[in-house]
Amino acid sequence: MATKAVCVLKGDGPVQGIINFEQKESNGPVKVWGSIKGLTEGLHGFHVHEFGDNTAGCTSAGPHFNPLSRKHGGPKDEERHVGDLGNVTADKDGVADVSIEDSVISLSGDHCIIGRTLVVHEKADDLGKGGNEESTKTGNAGSRLACGVIGIAQ
């Protein structure tokens, strides 16, 4: 089992970053940390998408990683996509320092995120509470600013 993974985020604009993942036990939580720069100040949706395909930019990554066919939600919700990591918060300089621990994603097994795409979005994720159909699919997080395929790390 891989215990570490990394993702280099890039987009068409100024947004870029490096996100690290570490899972010490196969059924334990995954620590997610790193930094994203070039964002507007505020909240930005942060999700693992189904495919590791960036051939047409971030759009070819498909929908959120959702092997259990659930509705979109927040990272602490029972009803959520596996890939729903909530929001990252950018400061006035456009930098989001990421520090998350998640017990639904994994670096092995059915919820493995390796080979899938991590995406940072234009807007805040409403965590499935926006009151419309799009909220239950995407959290109304808007366009995909930057993305990268999650790969095994040393």
Rank of each mutant, 00 (worst) to 15 (best):
A2R: 09
T3A: 00
A5D: 03
A5S: 13
V6Y: 07
C7G: 08
V8L: 05
D12K: 09
D12Y: 08
D12N: 10
G13Q: 10
G13A: 11
P14R: 09
Q16Y: 09
G17T: 03
N20M: 14
E22H: 09
E22Q: 08
E25H: 09
S26C: 11
S26M: 08
P29Q: 09
K31Q: 09
V32D: 02
V32T: 07
G34L: 03
I36G: 01
K37C: 08
K37L: 11
L39K: 01
L39A: 11
T40R: 12
T40P: 09
G42L: 09
H44V: 04
G45Q: 02
H47P: 02
H47E: 03
D53E: 03
D53R: 03
T55P: 02
C58F: 15
C58V: 02
T59N: 05
A61L: 02
G62P: 00
F65N: 02
N66R: 06
P67E: 03
L68C: 13
S69A: 06
R70C: 09
D77W: 11
D77A: 08
D77S: 14
D77P: 05
V82T: 10
V82C: 08
G83M: 02
D84V: 02
D84R: 02
L85N: 03
V88W: 05
T89R: 10
T89P: 13
D91K: 06
K92Y: 12
G94V: 09
V95L: 12
A96Q: 14
A96F: 04
V98H: 03
S99G: 15
S99I: 13
D102S: 07
V104L: 14
I105L: 05
I105A: 09
S106Q: 14
S106V: 13
L107A: 03
G109F: 14
G109Q: 07
D110T: 08
I113R: 02
I113V: 14
G115Y: 00
T117H: 02
V119A: 03
V119W: 00
V120Y: 04
H121M: 02
E122P: 02
A124M: 06
D126P: 01
D126R: 01
L127I: 06
G128W: 01
N132K: 13
E134A: 09
E134K: 04
S135C: 04
K137Q: 05
T138K: 03
G139S: 00
G139P: 00
A141C: 06
S143F: 06
S143R: 06
R144Q: 01
C147F: 03
C147H: 01
C147A: 02
C147W: 02
I152V: 05
